[in-house]
Design a protein around this nucleic acid. Structure first.
Lengths: 388, 388
DNA sequence: CTCAATATTTAACTTCGTCAAGTATTGATT
DNA sequence: AATCAATACTTGACGAAGTTAAATATTGAG
């Protein structure tokens, strides 16, 4: 029906990009409302939309939406045809690959995982090839309409070149991952830092939709933060940005592996919590699951560790709110779920340290299925299609 | 020679704005280098520059600059005619107005001050009128070429409307300062928060020139921070941004007037330092000047107070570096000069808490003449001319 | 059935840039 | 001195991408 491949840009003009982005992220919209929102004439929207409709990316909704109470021709909203194209997203961790197939609206259509036993570049690529093959040939037969692959990986990643400069968990340095993955799969590949990918997904397809500025905080082994400012993902001039985990919130707190003291991560990272709980209860064998269980059973000393951790996270988030002033903040985690133990303390720490109206910044705290990371990778791939 | 007034935009097209901004902030530049830098064709630069030359804002430098070792027609750099237009900047504090006349390149041409005895809106406006009159009629006779006035004021300011929402020191709420000042002076007025104005000045005319991201930290009674991200001044979605003073850096530190605990300002603000020094030496009458003198004389207890303050500031700056990753950071102060006592501790705190390559962010620490605040106001006014 | 109201399309026009060719000005080479 | 290569700048035709204004489409209400 439509050409399956081709690297031509989806939107040739700024107006077309704006129209498609608005419809994609903010649901069906009539041409007039698009014109208003984007500061364009309605004629320009008509022109921009036509090729997108012709290519099958947009379609006109049945005119069910009445314009309102009054008279007048009813609007014909434009909507994205989600199954026009599919995108594969893969999150690469040190012990597992997690993959998803997403449609154009970042809806997850299929998932798959593969264990990693070797974190060498070649071994990971081999597994990646298998994973992608399996996903792309899933029953629904996405192959004909899939041409892009997004990869998310922790560490220092240059999205524009697709180079993994340094990934501590995988022990990778200067791996030209995009090039390698493109040769392997034949797909157009985008590589992005995992936290930034998740932030981008949330910015376009989640709670951050429409926000000029937005922050996403991830809590787990590390504590990270992705920031959207002026509508764009923040990268930092040295590639460092959003390192909320190494903000110092306690001058007398524990030293951190980074050389700092009282870092949020040294108080509230998974390892730090485990260490503190072990000290508190005198059982050097306890795991994070055991610590959570003890806390839920009401062990006050263990609960205090979680309280301190939540407070530290809240202080870090307040620092984000005070410095950047995002329109909203989402706090989420790497699969594990100690939210019941942390949430109230995170909020308390945040509200105490957020300055003035910064405290009014809405805070969403919710667990995050692990596939979300892979979906983030797919979302970045979708963005690459839309905004080259 | 040239029309003195008129509200037509200086640059009618995006290219013209880009050309003028580049020449203004980055010194004389040839048309070819402008084209390279701005991603335009040299034809476009020629066309954009002509009206700017005709209006007297730009002029062609005598072709002294050789293109380099090789042959070829020498370049004719374009330069800004600094005395084409003058701008008045006024910083409004609770006890004084500080005013400057700046040229187009933000060079200070004249300064003046007026004491305030009454912080009511009408009283301040009356003094402002006197100050502006005095400056505009200075011997050099700027009146004919001055049509803009910038005002800088601490607190919550909406630059687009010129409304002072809340200024704690002046006790102002919802004062339509732009409108009032325009009626008073007949000049086109821009109102901006003082720290942001200073940041804008440094971004266009100081150490931040050319930086995509940049931070300026002010140390004094309050501790503030202006941020430039993605080449734009950051405002925060609720108007709150850069509130470095209320980041918590010490969970066991003193409580702050904001309700938080261990805020940078509660440790390193002028009042906090004075309070701590009074406790340390048991002299409740001591002032900040006295504290500085004691520290310089080698009083260890007092020096420790400054050390702690410097460290707290360094931690706050590290939080900025970790979260935002600016290309450089300037630390400056509100007139007073305890820099010798603070600098090493600021750097130590920063380097300890800055994560990875964030520590490589260049840090300039230097005192700041008080007129700089007024110059910041003038700089904002210049920006308004260039980028309406 | 007509009309007001609103949505969308069409076509002429404007703006702002690029492209390609020409002009200008220098140092080096003959 | 004449010529040439190299680089800077200018010119004019063109094209892309938007706007404006008028026409067309589709509805509810009178």
């Amino acid at each position: 029906m439509f050409p399956a491949t081709g690297t031509d840009a989806l939107a040739s003009t700024p107006a077309a990009t704006a129209v498609f982005t608005a419809v994609l992220t903010d649901g069906p919209l009539s041409r007039v409302s698009l014109a208003d929102r984007l500061g364009l004439s309605s004629a320009a929207v008509t022109k921009a939309a036509r090729p997108l409709i012709d290519m099958g990316y947009l379609y006109e909704l049945a005119a069910t939406e009445r314009t309102g109470p009054g008279a007048g021709r009813p609007a014909t909203p434009l909507a994205v045809r989600a199954d026009r194209e599919f995108f594969i997203g893969v999150k690469i961790t040190s012990d597992e690959l997690i993959g998803v197939v997403c449609d154009l609206r970042a809806g997850v259509r299929a998932t798959a995982r593969r264990r990693l036993t070797d974190t060498g570049v070649e071994a990971v690529l081999a597994e990646l090839g298998q994973l992608v093959e399996g996903l792309i040939d899933a029953p629904a037969g996405y192959r004909a309409r899939t041409r892009r692959l997004g990869l998310a990986i922790s560490g220092d990643v240059d999205r524009t070149t697709g180079l993994v400069r340094y990934s501590p968990f995988l022990q990778w340095r200067n791996v030209p991952l995009r090039q390698l993955a493109e040769e392997l799969t034949g797909l157009a590949v985008t590589v992005e830092n995992d936290v930034k990918a998740l932030t981008a997904a949330e910015h376009w397809f989640g709670e951050g939709v429409g926000a000029e500025s937005f922050a996403l905080v991830t809590v787990g082994t590390g504590i990270g933060c992705g920031l959207v400012v002026h509508g764009r993902l923040l990268s930092g001039s040295n590639g460092v940005a959003g390192e909320i985990g190494h903000i110092s919130v306690d001058a007398t707190g524990p030293t951190c592996h980074c050389g700092g003291r009282g870092c949020v991560e040294a108080i509230a990272g998974t390892d730090a919590i485990v260490r503190q709980v072990r000290e508190a209860v005198g059982r050097p064998d306890i795991t994070i699951e055991g610590a959570i269980a003890l806390a839920r059973d009401g062990d006050e000393a263990v609960r205090a560790v979680f309280a301190r951790a939540g407070n530290a996270i809240g202080c870090g988030i307040a620092a984000v709110a005070n410095l950047v002033g995002p329109a909203r903040i989402v706090v989420s985690g790497e699969g594990l779920a100690a939210y019941d133990l942390l949430e109230t303390h995170i909020r308390a720490g945040f509200e105490r340290q957020a300055f003035g109206v910064a405290a009014e910044c809405p805070l969403s705290i919710r667990p995050l299925p692990f596939e979300e990371w892979a979906r983030g990778a797919a979302a970045v791939s979708i963005q690459t299609l839309v905004v080259p």
